[in-house]
Design a protein around this nucleic acid. Structure first.
Lengths: 337, 337
DNA sequence: CAAAAATATGCAATCGATTGAAATAAGTGC
DNA sequence: GCACTTATTTCAATCGATTGCATATTTTTG
């Protein structure tokens, strides 16, 4: 009650407690060595004056920030904003994982204009480690930085010879599964919607191609480089579907959001899903449950992914070297295919 | 090339340059006083050794962190995750605004279990200011903390006598507009989908009630406390619509995501939108463009909102006192109503 | 009961950049 | 060439917590 003078640092508290600052520090941080009695007394005192040690000073001294950077590079996208629900899902999961482990999450969206964006972040000393969500078209940059900066993990595709540590689903397999599924349902002409400049998407496309080839339908695949951002994807898709070419019987969308765009365009031009056109998305977002018809999709286990990302990162921070993780994707058949 | 010894601090660089650390500091930070010549020389040297001043030390000395906390309290929600695209949209915009102004964004999701969650964050000294997205049911906590901690702004509803500084749209007006719109289209029985424990949602509901009262339809409004989280909202809505009560002619959903859930349930039970039931959402998310039929909604200008949040926060950090901002919502009529 | 061992606390250097005041160098006027 | 500004640069204290080492206090033990 009688808050004579605000206790602003460890020395103030030390004075009040009649001990040295060092003792207070040790007492508060439970670094053995201090008798139970004084420890309790100091802790009580700290609570009473609601004193919390200054984090910046602590960070400086122990040389860690307690924060992990989460970066979303939007290299191949001209659109300004992160509008893909995929990101928030991943972000929410990462926030959970990191919080649980006592780390803060520092968010940064980046539109890589030069090859320097990642270096700047890494060297800023703001974070103890970095999680990059999606390679976009920045694999080279990621590899270069990963070679000198250990605590870096990436959500996304895995490619042979890649230097950086990545976690993701097997995009090639996913693309293959998606196309195979459509083929099994009788589709011959298939369109792939997605911009293959991004690594993961390219891999999904390659998977589709493999499936088509196996079925002897290689020449039946059209590729539409639809934007990831919903608003931008719409015209891409509309142009393709109304351009008068042979109408696809099946569509593999590189993300659930693109699939939703497609769903709307199809409705607008009066095609029924799945009767006229079969459609399958990619990601397995909760959103896919809300569409009409509910969206078939290739599901990535993001919970497991976020968990793995954080695990690997912490091991790397500890100095360990870690392998990439490729998780199997899962076909979820709902009503759109 | 001959990187004899890594330059890790300002003193190392000072030694190389043959000047004092103070001079290096001033040269690098463009604090006048240093001759153009040495300044250029030191900057060149810094670039050459790619040296960047240690941020933690800087922060400690100048007593600011350069980071703004963004908190999403999920008080009234039992669901575990942030799955509302509204958040990512807001988050993306805030990231833009903050980055532009040289601040980092520290993300934190909180499930308030005690009344202490906000204090902990505020006192942690990790951030220079705090943006809270949505009051949830934590208005009291927000008011209490705002009384002692200036740099705090909240996205959400504004209520008379509120202590904390908020930015948001006029939820009451929005609810009123939504209901009025449906009434004008001939709806008499109207249902409101949303959990009114959250302040903003309660205000939207009150707006609806006002509109209904004006039209002499007060007894025709049913309220369904649907969850914000999409997965959880679905059964809430399905139960209501299939419970055999009089079917509503119009639905006001408290968010676009809830509206999407409703859209799906309506499709499942074979009701057509807008022919059998008219539906309007709230938020004005890009997502609403992707639904079939495209979603009518009450649009909040989130870009302006994010801009205002950051502006007000920075003014508060500077010591100024600021008023809350209530923005007018806008009716966007698409095809669902 | 003294010596040895164990435990508790204090002391002071350290992390790395910033900044007010003091010192030095350069420039100006007469 | 001297006194006097003015422009640069250096010095040293500071931000606040941590921690190796030294010292003081207790406890144990022979």
């Amino acid at each position: 009650m009688t808050e004579k003078q605000r206790v602003k640092n460890i020395s103030d508290l030390a004075r009040i407690a009649g001990v040295s600052p060092g003792t207070v520090s040790r007492a508060l941080s439970d670094t053995g060595l201090i008798s139970q009695k004084t420890r309790d007394r100091i802790k009580a005192l700290a609570r009473e004056h609601d004193f919390r040690p200054n984090i910046m000073a602590r960070n400086l001294r122990i040389q860690r920030t307690g924060a992990i950077g989460v970066v979303i590079p939007l290299g191949h996208e001209t659109g300004q904003h992160i509008s893909d629900p995929f990101f928030i899902t991943m972000l929410g999961l990462l926030a959970d994982e990191l919080t649980e482990r006592g780390y803060d999450l520092m968010l940064s969206r980046v539109i890589p204009t030069d090859g320097d964006w990642l270096d700047r972040f890494v060297d800023s000393g703001r974070v103890d480690g970095l999680i990059v969500i999606g390679q976009s078209d920045q694999s080279a940059t990621l590899d270069r930085v990963a070679a000198r900066y250990r605590p870096l993990v990436v959500w996304g595709g895995h490619s042979a010879g890649q230097v950086h540590c990545s976690v993701g689903s097997d995009n090639f397999a996913g693309g293959d599964i998606a196309a195979t599924h459509l083929i099994e349902r009788g589709c011959k002409r298939i369109a792939f919607f997605g911009d293959s400049r991004a690594l993961e998407i390219d891999q999904r496309l390659e998977g589709c191609k493999a499936a088509m080839a196996r079925a002897g339908l290689s020449d039946q695949l059209s590729v539409v480089p639809a934007h990831l951002v919903a608003e931008a994807a719409h015209p891409d898709i509309a142009d393709f579907l109304t351009s008068g070419g042979a109408r696809p019987q099946g569509i593999v969308a590189a993300s659930d959001v693109i699939a939703m765009s497609a769903l709307r365009v199809l409705a607008e031009i009066g095609l029924s899903v799945p009767d006229d056109v079969r459609l399958i998305g990619y990601d397995g977002l909760a959103l896919g449950e809300l569409t009409v018809p509910r969206l078939s999709t290739i599901k990535q286990d993001l919970t497991k992914g976020a968990h793995a990302l954080v695990n690997l990162l912490l091991r790397r921070i500890a100095g360990e070297d870690t392998d990439s993780l490729v998780m199997p994707p899962e076909l979820v058949v709902r009503l759109s295919s």
